[in-house]
């Protein structure tokens, strides 16, 4: 008898407890329904996407889309919270690469950004110049307070790559605070 084929189930990387910035933690226990997960994680995920994209409109759009995608895979996902975070991060990275980024960005100007302080705007502008991977690593590190190992798992890359993304990202961001 040959080797057993791997399970068809999507083995989501174990990203542990889904932690969000304001100290709220999504339980490690798998929610029984996607509605439960939505109740628990929608707002934190929108905030995460907002921090990554800079646009509330885009953030809600991406997170809703991620939930819609997860809907069809619910039975196959072992850790929906972790899966959702990775989906949102990937969706944000993809959004940065997408063609309509500039268009959406134009819509953003004059909307949410106007309530932000000048310092925050400067920092967000600098973040905008980073690559999607660098930005994702920076956000997960300094917004979600994940460790490099956790970020590596979330981004699906080696910890050394995460370290490199953060290092290079911070190097660029120094220009904002240095005269």
């Amino acid at each position: 008898m040959g080797p057993q084929p791997p399970s068809r189930r999507w083995h989501q990387q174990d990203v542990g407890t889904l932690q969000v910035a304001e100290g709220h933690e999504v339980a490690d226990v798998r929610p029984s329904t996607i509605e439960d997960l939505f109740e628990e994680a929608y707002r934190p995920m929108v905030r995460l996407a907002l921090v990554m994209t800079g646009s509330n409109e885009v953030a809600e759009d991406l997170v809703q889309d991620c939930f819609a995608r997860l809907h069809g895979r619910w039975e196959h996902v072992e850790n929906p919270g972790g899966y959702m975070r990775i989906s949102v991060v990937n969706a944000c990275k993809a959004w940065f690469r997408s063609r309509d980024r500039e268009r959406k960005r134009m819509q953003l100007v004059g909307a949410g950004e106007q309530v932000l302080s000048l310092e925050t705007k400067e920092m967000l502008d600098a973040l905008e110049a980073l690559s999607p991977q660098q930005r994702a690593a920076i956000v997960l590190r300094y917004y979600e307070d994940l460790s490099e190992a956790e970020i590596a798992e979330a981004l699906g890359c080696p910890p050394g790559t995460v370290k490199s993304h953060i290092h290079r990202g911070l190097a660029q961001l120094r220009k904002v605070v240095e005269p």
Partner: peptide, 30 residues
Amino acid sequence: VEDRLRAAFSELAATATFSPDAWTKVKSRR
């Protein structure tokens, strides 16, 4: 830089608003 980043993220995240019909939209997309 790290402090400024955290402050910027925090300030930005605090501006988040949420559609009241978000779940309906998710179901429609599905």
